[in-house]
Design a protein around this nucleic acid. Structure first.
Lengths: 218, 218
DNA sequence: CGTTTGTTTGAAAGGCTTCAACTACAGTGG
DNA sequence: CCACTGTAGTTGAAGCCTTTCAAACAAACG
């Protein structure tokens, strides 16, 4: 959150940061309809955002790793439009939105940063759209996760699938059975090793090639 | 663009508006890689935004009708990430983004309006995602188009499909043949009449019911 | 009037889902 | 420590929807 801002500005930012946590698996950060008051940055753990449609089916909107921001889609409205739940042990920083919004009026750097965060999310949603094959979706999911974790200092080749297969399926708009089958085939093709929720990517190059049609924009 | 703003503010806004047009079918508003300088509001006609993937396939990102804003996704970066082309005779208002951005720092109402515009687009992209059937997609497309046109004073029941079948197909991630077949079936089911690009919705209720699973969020 | 582009129609093929059953694991209480 | 129970994950077979391929057709344009 510190880009184009001087030290004094950062000082002001610290004034409106509230540290939250630890939350445990299953704890909710916010729920649909909760009054929108703050956005939050994940400091540790994984947060899943999702909605339940009228038919009772769950749609996973995204997974959020350390360094990433949740709650941005609440800005257009006075309540959160989705649920956010911790998948493991989670630490957060809450930023009061009214306060940050006022501050943004005085700090062009902050305003621009917020504009950019919002604008970026418009594009990110496009990952899901498109009629990709199950293989392409899964590869793109794994490559994206690997990159995002690596950007935060974690291993790009070994990490945990902190979410259930069902969550992955709901995120990728696939049946859980398909997720299972694709992962198995990827393993027998030597692309990766997967044991329960432990994942090791063996061939980033080939996996990236599979994901390429989906990720060419990023 | 006038919400929570007083007359003096509106006066300032008029200072940075530039009227553009008329553009004719096939004329581009901007192209991928053009320097991002402005957002634009459609005053008349239809604008299609799209990208060409490395395989040469066109992906239609959206259609934009009078009263709607294009170019927002350029904010995160210094060039436009997509192409915008006129589908018929188009009139535009250009808003210089650097200027509007500075002004937003002084007008909290404008800043909030921009935040909301951006935030809303994050959600809108979700229309495409989801693994809906061809019928559901087409119904949602027609209902959404009808509503948006009606919101601007046009007829909700009779309007022109200003875009080609191929464009609709690329937008809905369907084959053009499927678009053709679905429209034909809708017609023989008494949902609508379609003659070339002229469309009349005969049964908004049933069409809305078909689209409901896709549109329940809006 | 011929050519090009866009649209429609038909038949076959493919990929994912659905349904059903089975397996593995974690937590619980005996 | 071990059986038990419930949840999560895996595996197999059948079915369905959309795509693909191919061709006919219509409209627009020179």
């Amino acid at each position: 959150m510190a880009q184009g801002m001087d030290k004094a500005s950062l000082g002001e930012l610290h004034m409106l940061v509230e540290h939250v946590g630890p939350l445990h698996a299953g704890d909710h950060v916010f729920r649909v309809g909760d009054p929108f008051e703050a956005i939050a940055a994940v400091r540790a753990g994984t947060v899943k955002t999702y909605i339940i449609d009228p038919g009772g089916r769950e749609h996973v909107l995204g997974f959020h790793f350390p360094g990433e921001v949740i709650g941005l889609d609440g800005i257009d409205g006075d309540t959160y439009p989705c649920n956010a739940v911790a998948l493991d042990t989670v630490m957060l920083c809450r930023f009061s939105f009214p306060k940050i919004s006022v501050l943004a009026g005085r700090l062009p750097g902050l305003q621009q940063h917020l504009f950019r965060l919002l604008s970026r999310d418009i594009g990110r949603a496009a990952l899901l759209s498109g009629d990709w094959t199950a293989d392409e979706r899964m590869a793109a999911f794994l490559v994206t996760m690997s990159r995002r974790l690596a950007a935060r200092g974690f291993s790009a080749d070994r990490f945990q699938l902190t979410m259930a297969r069902t969550d992955i399926a709901n995120y990728l708009r696939l049946a859980p059975e398909t997720v299972s089958r694709v992962l198995k085939r990827f393993q027998s093709d030597g692309l990766l090793n997967v044991d329960r929720r432990e994942l090791e990517i063996l061939d980033q190059a080939r996996l990236g090639a599979l994901a390429a049609p989906v990720l060419w924009k990023q």
